[in-house]
Amino acid sequence: MAYDKFNILTSTAVPLPIENVDTDQIIPARFLKATERKGFGDNLFRDWRYNQDNTLKEDFVLNQEKYTGKILVGGKNFGSGSSREHAAWAIYDYGFRCVVSSFFADIFRNNCLNIGVLPVQVSAEFLQKIFDAVEADPETALEVNLPEQKITLLATGESESFDINSYKKNNMLNGFDDIDYLLNIKKDIETFASNTPL
C-alpha cells in the first residue's frame, strides 16, 4: 500500500529529551484494540499527556502550545520495547512525519520506514544542539533533506548527514512499499519455497 512520499521536510520540532522512550509510552497496550489503522494519534503518549482523570498534564511537551511541527525529537534509544507498529501509526496520525534521535530501537525504526515516517539518526552532540535550539526558540525550524541525506538547523546553518540504505531511500522518495517489490519477484519466492526443507 503506497504511503506519503518524503522529499524535503521543513518544520518546527517538538523536543522530548528523555532516553529509552519505549513503545508502551508512545502508545499503551490498552489502546491497541482497533482493527483499522486510524485514530491512534489521540492516544499518542497517553499517560504522559493526560492525568488519570483525563485532564491534561500541562508540563508535557505535546500540551505546550509553543511546540508544534512535523518533527519529533527524542532522546537516545527511542522506540525500544514492543514491536507494536501502532507506535509508529500514532506518531504519524498525530501529524509527525519524521523522528530524530541519536539512537533508535530496531523494530521501531523498521516500522517507521514501512509507513513513511522518516527516522533520522544523528550524533549525540547534534541531538543536543537541536534540543538546545528548539528549547531556546520553539519557532526555530529544521530542514530534513532526504535526497541529500542531510538535516539542518536553519537558524545557524549547522547540519549533519544521516544514513539510510538506497533501497529504503528510494521507497520513501516514491512512496513505494516492500510488498510491491516482493510481489514482483513472486516467481523466485515460489521456486525457493518449493525447495525448502522445513
Binding site: 489503522r37 514491536s83 507494536r84 507498529e85 501502532h86 509508529a88 523494530i107 523498521n110 516500522n111 514501512n114 509507513i115 512499499d177 516492500d178 510488498i179 516482493l182
Partner: peptide, 8 residues
C-alpha cells in the same frame, strides 16, 4: 516484526 511486515 511490525504489522506491515505481518502483511508482507
Amino acid at each position: 516484526i511490525g504489522t506491515s511486515e505481518v502483511e508482507m
